[in-house]
């Protein structure tokens, strides 16, 4: 917790605002974004670690406390009472600490995708072009992101399953590159949370909650016709994308690339390499039409 406190103390008022709202929406040079997001990511890593430490300590306190109190009951009931008080104090303190840390928690996916990409975007950004970036760091399963709930159904041993759906558009970015290309990145996480109820042979009810996530990553690049023309086949051996659309319109070739990533759980880190691949694929669909020094 001390390192979390230290990290917190170093934060600017702007950082504190982000920690409170967990929303970011601004335009500034890509390199300056780094100064805002890197300390928040650092704090988040520390807070996550501290929270899991506190969880382990709580588990030990509960196990040891219950065992000792039960044992002492046979010896001297008054000792059991003293032990109860003795264990209750750190347990309450740890629960409060966990609550405080939980409030600091920022969604891993949004920061984990954006932060590694900043130096790359800074490399290609036009000199005077800011990065427009909107991040939602609240995580995918907050109430505001609930899109609906399915009818209860039964499957296998579970006699009642209710699915709740969430949609979390947590990253949106726009930037103009030095070659005149207009780049847009958008990421949405869809979560299906299933609450499953079954009865075991002894008639006890068991409830299991499972989440599945589907992350849709979209990149669109508008290549100016003065520099680029569309080509039929992409060059190179780039990792494939799930959808690719090339639209030639007045003054620009617009290439849209999409990849969908599925996994269990909700809200965890996502490899930023997906967005790099999508951009590389988009650049694979055009060729330069003139020779010029940028």
């Amino acid at each position: 917790m001390t390192s979390v406190r230290e990290s917190l103390r170093m934060l600017s008022s702007e950082h504190r605002d982000v920690l409170r709202t967990k929303l970011v929406d601004d335009r500034r040079p890509a390199a300056e974004w780094h100064a805002l997001l890197a300390p928040l990511h650092d704090l988040d890593v520390r807070a996550d670690a501290a929270r899991s430490r506190a969880g382990k300590q709580l588990l030990w306190l509960y196990v040891a406390g219950i065992a000792l109190i039960l044992a002492s009951l046979f010896v001297a009931p008054i000792a059991a009472l003293a032990l109860l008080v003795l264990f209750a104090i750190p347990i309450v303190a740890l629960h409060l600490q966990r609550g405080r840390l939980k409030r600091l928690d920022l969604a891993d996916a949004a920061l984990g995708l954006a932060l590694p990409l900043l130096p790359l975007l800074a490399e290609d950004a036009a000199d005077d072009a800011p990065l427009e970036l909107a991040l939602d760091l609240r995580g995918p399963t907050v109430d505001a992101k609930r899109t609906g709930e399915g009818e209860p159904y039964a499957r296998g041993a579970y006699h009642r399953i209710v699915d709740t759906f969430f949609a979390d558009p947590f990253l949106h970015a726009r930037i103009r590159f030095a070659d005149g290309a207009h780049v847009r990145l958008a990421v949405v996480e869809h979560v299906r949370r299933s609450r499953k109820v079954k009865r075991n042979p002894r008639g006890k009810t068991k409830i299991k909650v499972k989440s599945k996530r589907r992350i849709q990553l979209d990149v669109s690049v508008a290549f100016p016709a003065r520099n680029y023309v569309a080509v039929a086949a992409p060059t190179g051996a780039l990792p494939p994308t799930d959808r690719e659309r090339v639209t030639v319109r007045d003054g620009a070739t617009v290439v849209a690339e999409r990849r969908v990533v599925k996994s269990a759980g909700a809200g965890g880190a996502i490899d930023s390499g997906h967005l790099v691949d999508l951009l590389a694929r988009a650049y694979g669909r055009v060729e330069p039409v003139r020779r010029k020094k940028l």
Binding site: H41, G112, P116, L117, P119, L120, A269, D271, H274, V276
Partner: peptide, 13 residues
């Protein structure tokens, strides 16, 4: 700290 896990994206600097 490495942000991505087991993938091929750049590390957070």
């Amino acid at each position: 700290p490495v942000v991505h896990r087991g993938g091929h994206g750049p590390e957070a600097v």
